[in-house]
Design a protein around this nucleic acid. Structure first.
Lengths: 336, 336
DNA sequence: ACCTGTGGATCAAACGATTGACCAGGTCGC
DNA sequence: GCGACCTGGTCAATCGTTTGATCCACAGGT
């Protein structure tokens, strides 16, 4: 690989001249002729700035870590897309990691930052993270942004408008005429689960309806947890006629279980889920969902991180634009 | 962050002594006492070797790039898992990128290697890559491993045993008694599509059955392409009683389309797909699939890459162990 | 007493890019 | 005609780590 020195030699100038020209340094006082020679030489040698050299000197990598519990969850497609688009606009790169590795190989985040591999880390935590482990992550003022979660004493987070998402989903069921509505949500300790359940309850309360405790389950966002929740809820003395599921993966599991139980959706039971993904339109029946702005979530997280890196102050943001949007497919209908 | 110098000062020794001790250098002739002081000092300061410094000096990053067309395809879960596990065993890290970016932001692979961000790149190409673009990637002997594809003149690839996968799927349909069997596969230019179609044809031939050209479609691996293929194939004068789909995502689309067309699966049409994923067990009916060893594919790709980095010679490998395995669910039955 | 060997540690030169300090020559003001 | 200032550059230190070369003290062999 060509180095600055090679380019300098070919252009007949000093290394520093080349450096200043190629990185558009403001203090670059260079004659047009010299500039041209340098640019040409660089192109001819296919010069690319060495990452390590640059990072070592400037103590910045222009890389942001994105750590997720499960990189392949269909849900996170848009999040990663948005983050990618936004980093590219700012000349950064994205380094993806599994927070899975937190338990297994020890503390990815600490390594990423401690070894100077990234300038900052955005982390979406899994359900299985103990708050104690968290505290050690956030050593004073380290550039860590939490996605879909908040932590006391730590500033730097980006979250969805969960309560509104749950409200839109619930309101759709109310509008269809349902009254006995259940909710399948995530583990009680989960930030999003709390907010979505709260949105659900508030909407029901506003409609003057009470929620049967037996119609609420908090088993988790995974398909098999959705299945278990479905079995439990529909085993209630008077089962609901509709159910709001706080996550599309859980909804897919719940849908499969409903069918296995001999329930017809939407004839016997309406189902709507928060989140949309391509998997939702390929279930049977296709799922009615509320699409949450994951793409914007990704962009916003990156924007917040870059602002923090450049100006030193973190932000706590809620992504409200675009708002959660109802996508009506075939898993909901009016009660019989 | 603590540097080698800080540790050296605290332990009262030279920087080089610290370096040799902490990196277990073979030529480290150090007295037990000194070693102990160094180790203690490093721990107290929470020393972590600076990535850039190390990479600059040693010209190795211990990072391998994994470039995929679509990071969130449910199919690649196991591949990434396997790759992660294998790199960790060797003290490497994985840098994930989208080959998507090849068209958009210009040549990720070139940047990754050219800027020295990674030691090598493993790339799974999307369907939409032009062979011309490829040739420029593989500049003489650059450490690039292709996943699920081969390229003339380039050594370094890892592929699945596609023909066997297709054979197992097809044989299952034959064993059930089907005779008019169709195939839905990927674009003709795709490496895997060719091999799977070939496996399908060979199996049919071995059974003494002929394949109706109208029962074969090569529209692609995406859900909507699977839908289109289903519509086309079932519009044939005498439609097949069973169909082998070469990809689970296409199969999910095809399944949805079959239902939309009023076909009952498996009563009117049996369907089996190559590849398995959690989405396959949550469709209705749950899909019968052939599970391909993606996890081992990931491990093997990494092993090949690391071998190449350390010994200089690439390998072309086929992952045959474990062999493709039939998972019978509810989308196949004997013909009526 | 003198050379040799060796264990235990330090010195110093890289790696490639960045950037403040510096310098040679020309122009301008007075 | 002389200092001030600008233009167009170069010098050299620095970031943190690695590693071949070197050095010192001391033991053993002759």
């Amino acid at each position: 690989m060509a180095t600055l020195g090679d380019v300098a030699a070919r252009a007949g100038v000093s290394v520093s001249a080349v450096s200043r020209v190629l990185s558009n340094h403001p203090s670059a006082r260079v004659s047009p002729g010299t500039r041209e020679r340098i640019v040409v030489a660089a192109r001819e040698l296919d010069y690319r700035p060495n990452f390590a050299g640059r990072a070592l000197k400037s103590a910045r990598t222009n890389v942001i870590g994105l750590v997720m519990p499960d990189l392949t969850n269909a849900l996170f497609t848009d999040l990663i897309d948005g983050a990618e688009d936004e980093v590219r606009d700012h000349g950064y790169m994205l380094l993806l990691g599994r927070s899975d590795a937190v338990r297994a190989g020890g503390d990815v985040i600490g390594r990423l930052i401690g070894e100077g591999r990234v300038d900052g880390v955005m982390v979406q935590l899994g359900d299985a993270v103990k708050p104690a482990a968290l505290r050690t992550l956030f050593t004073a003022g380290s550039p860590v942004t939490m996605i879909n979660a908040r932590q006391d004493g730590h500033v730097g987070s980006v979250v969805l408008d969960d309560a509104v998402g749950a409200r839109v989903a619930t309101q759709h069921l109310l509008d269809l005429g349902h009254q006995r509505i259940g909710a399948i949500t995530g583990l009680p300790a989960t930030f999003t689960a709390q907010r979505r359940l709260q949105g659900f309850r508030a909407t029901m309360r506003a409609a003057g309806l009470r929620v049967d405790p037996a119609h609420v389950s908090k088993l988790g966002y995974l398909p098999h947890q959705g299945r278990a929740a479905m079995r439990r809820i529909m085993g209630a003395p008077t089962p609901p006629t509709a159910v709001m599921v706080a996550n599309v993966n859980a909804a897919i599991g719940a849908l499969a279980e409903a069918r296995a139980m001999g329930l017809r959706v939407p004839d016997d039971l309406s189902m709507v889920s928060v989140h949309d993904s391509w998997t939702a339109e390929n279930t049977w029946p296709p799922l009615t969902t509320v699409k949450m702005p994951f793409y914007e979530l990704g962009r916003t997280a990156v924007r917040g991180m870059i602002q923090r890196l450049q100006e030193g102050s973190g932000v706590d943001a809620v992504v409200t634009e675009p708002p959660p949007r109802l996508i009506v497919r075939e898993s909901t209908r009016r009660p019989r």
